[in-house]
Amino acid sequence: QIARIKKSCRRCEKMVQEPAPSRPIPGSMAGPNLLSHILVSKFDDHLPLYRQHEIFARMGADIPESTLVGWCGRAMKTLQPLIERIEAEIMASDLLHADDTPIRVLDRSRRDKGLGKGVKQGRIWAYVRDQRPWAGSAPPGVIYYFAPDWKEDHVLGHLANARGILQADGYKGYAKLYEPQTDGAPRLREAACWAHLRRDFHDFWVSTKSEIAREALDRIGKLYDTERGINGQTADVRHAARQKLSAPKVASFFAWSEQQLLRIPGKSDLAKGFRYGLSRREAFSLFLTDGRVAIDNNPAERALRPIGIGRKNWLFAGADTGAETLARAMTIIETAKINGLDPQAYLADILDRIHDHKINRLDELLPWNWAPMAQAIDSQAA
């Protein structure tokens, strides 16, 4: 409850009253602290809304689950201008990590048509900018997009304006992005993931104890030994170290891989692993010639880990709109976390300020620029 005192002038009897403060959701009783608690509990702590409803009920606050759903969606609508600024910043990077993961989404139309139990498989895509491993100046960030299926059109739309280097797995939908343009150069150069390649050999070694798979793991492990020593160094330092220490090992690995393919069954999983690496030799070697490029795509895989944890709790999204809300919420929460912020404190502050904040100063509320309101007032006064 907000008390606004009315005062009147004794001479002219004119009534005056302080304007009502803006609400994060116009016309709603939900304040910024309550909304931030609900959002972080749902999208960071992975606490489904029906459980939050039960918790609030035990505390004497009967907030219907449908109301909680509405608050989440409308809060994301309030934050949409800020989320769009994060997206614009991250997607403008000339070096991106990308990955995706499945998510179950309720689709009652499928059940009505007799197509299963009314659940479809959508995808959550993550795009990460992280220059910290090579001491870059741009702040880290991650954005998420929901797609109702795994068609390449979604990726091509996400990366329509992207230029530079894309570090990702071997998903076929990326292929058109690597094709030469009219000037002969591709819009994006492919950087492959050594961790993904290593996983193929690791899985085969675990199941068969193959000596060849074990040697492949050892050879790749030596590349990572070098990477541990140069993590956080400048791109030039990383490039020099890789040329001296890693380039000979990579050349040796691929020469050895070609020899092993002549010795093992062509249809085995081990052979598939070797062929995967050899077919993308240029992409696997790009990190040797550019010190900014990581040896693997682990930043994107780490960004998707919260989705995997969340799936075990909320099981599925209630609709496409719910999955889109999830993607927007994860964008702002995970970007806040990767910049070292407490997501609940950050969300509470910007939800309280965003309606009254000048649109031409919106960048002040980005996670890497944000300062709590008290600090912002002090800095302006100074």
Rank of each mutant, 00 (worst) to 15 (best):
A147N: 11
G170M: 02
L35D: 11
P248C: 02
L39V: 11
E84I: 02
H97A: 09
T321N: 01
Q131R: 12
N297D: 09
H239Y: 09
R263E: 15
K172C: 03
I25N: 06
M29I: 09
S285W: 06
I124T: 06
S285M: 09
T208G: 03
S28V: 07
E215F: 01
V69T: 13
G291A: 00
R132W: 04
I354M: 09
D236P: 00
G114P: 06
R110K: 15
S207F: 01
P148N: 07
V250F: 01
L351Q: 08
Q80M: 14
L177M: 09
A126M: 08
L95W: 13
A345W: 00
G157L: 01
R129Y: 09
K151Q: 15
F284Y: 15
T335A: 06
T182V: 14
G273T: 06
S66D: 14
F146V: 00
P64V: 06
R108A: 10
P265R: 11
D203T: 10
R238D: 04
L177S: 03
R263H: 02
I220F: 04
L156F: 00
R214N: 12
A271N: 11
I295R: 08
R51D: 03
D94P: 04
A371E: 14
D130I: 11
S268C: 04
I332V: 15
R305S: 04
A348C: 01
T234F: 05
H37I: 02
A98H: 03
R10D: 13
K222V: 03
D100Y: 05
D352K: 12
S207C: 01
F254G: 04
L278T: 03
L347T: 11
S285H: 00
S28T: 11
R189A: 05
R228C: 04
I212M: 05
A255P: 00
L261R: 14
E364Y: 10
E211H: 06
A345F: 00
I63P: 12
A323M: 08
S22C: 02
Q80A: 14
